[in-house]
Amino acid sequence: MKEFKSLVKPYILWSFLLIIVPLLLIVLYSVTTGGNSLVNIRFTLENFKKIGEPIYIQVFVRSFRLGLITTILCLLFGYILAYVIAQFSEKAQSILILFVTIPMWINTLLRTYAWISILSENGIVNSFLEVIGLNPVTMMYTDFSVVLGLVCDLLPFMVIPIHTSLSKMDKSLIEAAYDLGAHRWQAFWRVTFTLSIPGVINGVTMVFLLSISTFVIPKLLGGGQYVLIGNLIENQFVSIGDWNFGSAISLLLAILMLLMINITKKLDKMEGGGDL
């Protein structure tokens, strides 16, 4: 086995060049001014102070709120979907999971444009409402359209980990719960749900992280004025050109995410390990 250990070396080099170095650059950018010029470098904490301005705090709050709503909805629909899928035969399950992932094969941009054509002023839904004699509803460029887009986009990330933990569950545990006097609902909460918590935590973490850092969907379905953290960072890099401020926001977001992952992991252990 030992001789194979050296096989890992190219990979270490690779990850160093492609992951560690860019990360270090972001850290460097976030605590300096002077943009790309490495000559006029000057260390400062101005970039982080700037995030404290109310207008940016607002962006963070809005992003987290949206992320929370998206995650809760994804959890609700994703759990039900995963649970229903797990009731089928193994063969049917793999086909159904395939259906869940099919939308992921199509570019996010295209999928989001599809939502525009469905939700816009003269889109499919409003045309239908008109036909049955109702007033058109404004759906585009609202919280509704953004959340809808996010939920549909991120649902697979919730369904797959939950389904995995549900499908590998020993069915005799549920029988044991019935046997010991648990009703269907009690058996579900005390056994099925408890055993699926690792999947739920994985799903929640992924969906939440993806939803607060996304920028394509809020841009297209929320309109230009709907600024979230993702858009803010994108703007700093693409249009405004303040890479230092953009890096600071990215770094702060990354730190917040790490903290959250840590907290959920601790929660997972408390749930799973009992008194250990």
Binding site: D179, L180, L276
Partner: peptide, 21 residues
């Protein structure tokens, strides 16, 4: 239903709840 029957089962692979002590 099983939860109303006055019988209890010892399962083949025990089926102990892994998340409980």
């Amino acid at each position: 239903p099983p939860y109303k029957r006055e019988v209890n089962t010892v399962f083949q692979k025990y089926a102990l709840f892994p998340f409980l002590n």
